[in-house]
Simulated assay, not measured.
Amino acid sequence: MNLVNKVIVITGGTSGIGRQIVEQLQAQNTIIVVARNSDRLEQLNMRYKNVTCFPADLSDPGSYKPLSERIQAEFPRVDVLINNAAIQNEPFFTDPDFEYEKITREINVNFTAVCALSYLLIPALNSNEAQSIILNINSGLSFVAKKSASVYCASKAAINLFSQSLSYQLENTNIKVLQAFIPLVDTPMTQGRGENKMSAECAAKSILKGLKQQNPQNDIGKIKVLRILNALTPSLAKRLLKGS
């Protein structure tokens, strides 16, 4: 896909990888950013003329339908939907400070919103004969879990199978479903953990390269090695990721 003069919706586009994707695409495309932080959205609006912002709390399922209706009222055609927004809670279920209420919020942001927006924006994605794309940003933790962040791991695993199934359902439409599997990236979400992280700028470039090539499974950086290792010696892959 030639990423020029496209209408692109991206969730979680105000920081980290999402912000880098916005910056790399905004000059030649119309970018619709969905995020919760109104101050950051306002900054994007002021900085980039081709960026339109829609505030929404994706942890609230009640926000999905009104959000999609607002987007499609202003943009009847959408060429690309990038489901990028995600949160990751680290405490173990056995920790005294574990907050039970965060389970539903994490699942909603990481998975429910992906399903809902993919469905609700189908009319706009299918509005013309040109190719359109749903791109779900995923993680190596979707197929090899770590000890912490169990809800995050589960939600990413769910996105993996959801993406595969949805691609089957949309085979006879103009919509393709792609995934980008990213390694540990230096973003606000990963602050204070891990070493040798990929930069958000580099991750965004690799994600967009896979999008242009319409790669159904874009393994980025160390994910290529992890997938091979998991196929050949899954027990070793599990040991390596367990405490990451």
Rank of each mutant, 00 (worst) to 15 (best):
V4T: 15
N5M: 10
V7K: 01
G13V: 03
G16T: 08
E23T: 09
L25M: 09
A27N: 14
N29C: 05
T30S: 07
I32Q: 02
V33S: 02
V33D: 01
L41N: 00
L41V: 03
Q43T: 14
L44Q: 03
M46I: 10
F54G: 07
A56G: 08
L58W: 04
S59P: 11
P61E: 00
P61W: 04
P61G: 10
S63T: 14
K65Q: 10
L67S: 00
S68R: 06
E69L: 12
N83C: 06
N89D: 07
N89H: 06
D97E: 10
Y100D: 13
I103K: 12
R105I: 13
N108W: 11
Y119C: 12
N126R: 07
S127K: 08
E129R: 07
Q131W: 01
Q131Y: 02
A145D: 13
K147A: 12
I159Q: 03
S163Y: 03
S163N: 04
S163G: 07
S165W: 01
S165H: 06
Y168V: 15
E171I: 08
T173V: 03
F181A: 02
F181W: 14
L184R: 07
T187G: 04
T190I: 11
T190A: 15
T190H: 04
E195P: 09
A203E: 06
A203M: 09
S206C: 14
I207Q: 13
L208H: 03
N215Q: 14
N218S: 07
L232H: 08
L236E: 13
A237E: 05
L240Q: 07
L241M: 11
G243Y: 15
